[in-house]
């Protein structure tokens, strides 16, 4: 056992883990943050995406100890519980959500993009979410939701 210390959704946390734990399992099973999903466990679907020091990673193939001393943002870190984050709001309004299984990760990929590039082109948006499979919605409304957040 070892102690993983990281800044998680703005708060410093310490959690006892096995050195062989994956970040996804620590988030879901040790910290109860169920918004991060597993769809494949192999990096192929992106449902487990979280933001690690500003970059999206697939937490299912990320050793938890890679987060040591770093900042992790999961979907639970986006809204303060009262107001939805603008990206969350846009996803709801633009019909970007169907079954919702891909959604938390998709929103995080959108956030990582917009944080770096507030005025992405359609192609840049597509590429930014190209590691997040959505089988329900065909992506078009996800792109529209992200585009709606571009300030002219």
């Amino acid at each position: 056992m070892t102690v993983l210390k990281m800044k998680l959704n703005g708060k410093q946390v310490e959690v006892e883990i096995k050195p062989s734990d994956l970040l996804l399992n620590v988030l879901r099973d040790k910290l109860g943050l169920m918004g991060t999903k597993e769809g494949c466990g192999e990096g192929d679907c992106g449902a487990c995406t979280v933001i690690l020091d500003g970059e999206t990673v697939t937490s299912c193939i990320t050793p938890a100890l890679k987060a040591m001393g770093k900042e992790v943002i999961t979907i639970e870190g986006l809204s303060d519980g009262k107001e939805l984050h603008p990206i969350q709001k846009a996803f709801v309004e633009y019909g970007a959500i169907q079954c919702g299984y891909c959604t938390p990760a998709m929103i995080l990929s959108a956030k990582a993009l917009l944080d770096k590039n507030p005025t992405p082109t359609r192609e840049e948006i597509k590429t930014a979410i190209s590691g997040n499979l959505c089988r329900c919605g065909g992506y078009e409304y996800i792109i529209a939701a992200i585009q709606s957040l571009i300030k002219p």
């Binding site: 990096g43 992106g46 995406t49 690690l52 970059e55 999206t56 990673v57 697939t58 193939i61 990320t62 990929s109 990582a112 590429t127 930014a128 190209s130 590691g131 997040n132």
Partner: peptide, 9 residues
């Protein structure tokens, strides 16, 4: 390579 996530790692 892969996807943004894979390229980041």
């Amino acid at each position: 390579v892969g996807s943004p996530q894979i390229r980041n790692m």
